[in-house]
């Protein structure tokens, strides 16, 4: 009888699903949630890298204005999401951002700085709103905000770093290629293929 009981206990233990009771809790948990949230969503990643790439394509001052505009306006969108202010077509806007920004890079569009800033700012609101509404309940909100902004900025820097290939012979084609891949990914998100 005792052996049977032991066997049952072992089987029950093996069959249990992992417990996530403390995931996202506390300072470290909140920070990690914020840090990983933008990175786990491919639709967010491609758009944020595209912002950095387009900044590199446009050169100074867009190189630093675009990555400066995006986190600030995204935070405003995030605040709207946190405060429960509704916004239409958020997912559509996010998917469109990958397509549009990718095309801007692939086609080497030299838009005036204000046009680029407004366009990037509009897309940033959609991304921020999605992050704000998806805030994990258990996460430490303040630590989440810190991680979330750092991850976004890091993705822009990754885009700018890749865009630096522009200064190398043939590098502009690599940058255009990256833009084309991002545009294709955006199209896939937009059509529901990904």
């Amino acid at each position: 009888m005792r052996q049977v009981l032991t066997l049952v206990l072992v089987l029950v233990t093996v069959a249990t699903a992992p417990a996530f009771a403390h995931e996202g809790e506390g300072l470290a948990g909140g920070f990690m949630s914020g840090l990983t949230h933008p990175i786990y969503g491919l639709d967010h990643v491609v758009a944020m890298v595209a912002v950095g790439l387009w900044g590199a394509v446009l050169g100074a001052p867009a190189l630093w204005i675009l990555p400066l505009v995006f986190p600030l306006v995204m935070a405003l969108g995030g605040a709207m999401g946190v405060l429960g202010i509704p916004m239409p077509a958020v997912e559509l806007g996010i998917a469109a951002s990958g397509l549009v920004l990718g095309l801007m890079v692939a086609l080497w569009v030299q838009a005036p700085i204000w046009v680029a800033a407004v366009l990037v700012g509009i897309f940033a609101v959609f991304h921020g709103h999605a992050h704000g509404t998806e805030l994990p309940e258990a996460a430490n909100a303040i630590a989440y905000a810190v991680g979330f902004v750092i991850a976004t900025g890091a993705l822009h820097i990754a885009g700018i770093a890749f865009g630096a290939l522009n200064g190398v012979k043939g590098g502009s084609w690599a940058v255009r290629g990256a833009g084309a891949v991002i545009a294709l990914a955006g199209a896939a998100f937009l059509t529901g293929m990904a």
Partner: peptide, 11 residues
């Protein structure tokens, strides 16, 4: 980024 973090914290 400090500004962005502040906006989110305010929210």
């Amino acid at each position: 980024w400090i500004g962005a973090i502040s906006i989110l914290m305010l929210a």
